[in-house]
Amino acid sequence: MSKRTANSAAPLPLAPPPSLWRLFVAFFIMGGTSLGGGVIAYLRTGLVMRYRWLDDEHFVELMAISQSLPGLNATNMSILAGDRLRGWPGALVAGLGMCLPGASLMTAAAFAYGIGGDDPASKAFLRAIAAGAVGLISVVLVQLGAKMLTEFADYIFVALTAGLVAFLHVPVPYAMIGVGALAIWWHRPRKAGPGKAAEAPGKEPAP
């Protein structure tokens, strides 16, 4: 993740944890300005660069937890960062602040859709952005894959999961538990041999 940019030079000291109100406002602003997905990038800009509430090391650690647990990554990140900064009340206001702007807008969108959803022009608009969304999800997939898949077997697990769910219509929990158990067993900790699988997954930054 970490790029070889200037942020590794001379780390500034962290700022003191903010008040709950400031925490809420900061997450509300990040939740309201992070257009078009990729909220994690906005969170890093805010938490690490602008407010200096977390350093990069902590940020990456929290991101790893967020991504391996169910729940939306951005919401999970907000909860974990809020907890670090102000305990459980911090987790609560950070999560709320992150979700409120988008949730209010999408609720309003449902009412607007009820009024204009059958209009052929808005249908043409929505169908075209659905096609655009397929392009966007493909990009997310490629980037996620580049980060998470380190050996050939990983691609088999991906194909197996996707095939079971999208083509054979296996319910997601079964596919998740079945393929998940197989994949975890494949990567199981081995006794320290010439040490291939015993070490942590490759985290080297891309060249």
């Binding site: 991504q67 391996s68 999800i137 997310v140 997939l141 996620l144 894959g145 998470m148 898949l149 380190t150 990983d154 697990f157 991906v158 194909a159 197996l160 999961t161 996707a162 769910v165 999208a166 997601v172 596919a175 998740m176 393929v179 998940g180 158990a181 197989l182 994949a183 975890i184 067993w185 494949w186 990567h187 997954p201």
Partner: peptide
């Protein structure tokens, strides 16, 4: 790592 592969597979699905 195991969950990572399954997660990517689910996004693909």
């Amino acid at each position: 790592r195991g969950i990572g592969s399954v997660a990517v597979g689910l996004v693909l699905a």
